[in-house]
């Protein structure tokens, strides 16, 4: 039963992300909840499981938004792998570490997305400035949301650990 918690939570986050515009109308800023979830998992499960989990989350996104199928799978898997790898060497499992990882993952995703767009459109004129501004807002919103997200995920993780220890 407890194994279902994370998939259910993933679906909940997906719904939250896609309906965020209706909850906070008037702006186009949506936190990347799924990326925050991948970062959290990678921090606690290491590089291999982090990459696998990232690929699964990416698959869900690619199935729903198939314009460039595979892009989310690859980028989320890479995020999961590198964060899992780096965390084992450098950081402790704390909120500050999560905050830094969220910032790095957001920038990584936006950079890869930028490269993809340059390949697809073969030109950067007309959209690069908007993209830059959008990236700053994306980073900002993700960092803000990372704090409550860390607390919620920690609570769930602790609850599951207690449950499993009985």
């Amino acid at each position: 039963m407890s194994g279902l918690i994370w998939p259910v939570f993933l679906l909940l986050l997906l719904s939250l992300q896609t309906s965020w515009f209706a909850l906070f109308p008037g702006n186009n800023l949506t936190p990347d909840f799924l990326l925050l979830f991948v970062v959290f998992h990678a921090m606690f499960s290491g590089s291999n499981k982090g990459a696998l989990f990232g690929a699964m989350v990416g698959l869900v996104q690619d199935v729903l938004a198939p314009t460039t199928f595979g892009f989310h799978i690859v980028t989320r898997a890479l995020v999961g792998f590198f964060i899992g790898e780096t965390k084992e060497r450098v950081f402790k499992d704390n909120g500050q570490g999560y905050f830094v990882f969220v910032g790095a993952a957001s920038l990584f995703v936006k950079t890869t997305h930028f490269i993809l767009l340059v390949i697809v459109t073969t030109s950067v004129s007309g959209w690069i400035l908007d993209y830059f501004v959008g990236t700053i807002f994306y980073l900002f919103v993700n960092l803000i949301v990372s704090l409550p997200m860390w607390m919620v995920l920690q609570k769930i993780g602790t609850w599951l650990e207690k449950r499993d220890s009985y």
């Binding site: 515009f21 209706a22 949506t30 690619d62 989310h72 980028t75």
Partner: peptide, 15 residues
């Protein structure tokens, strides 16, 4: 009615 947005990085689809 639009019921879903921002599914992926390329925000080019809505539900």
């Amino acid at each position: 009615k639009v019921i879903g947005k921002n599914i992926g990085d390329i925000k080019d689809t809505v539900l």
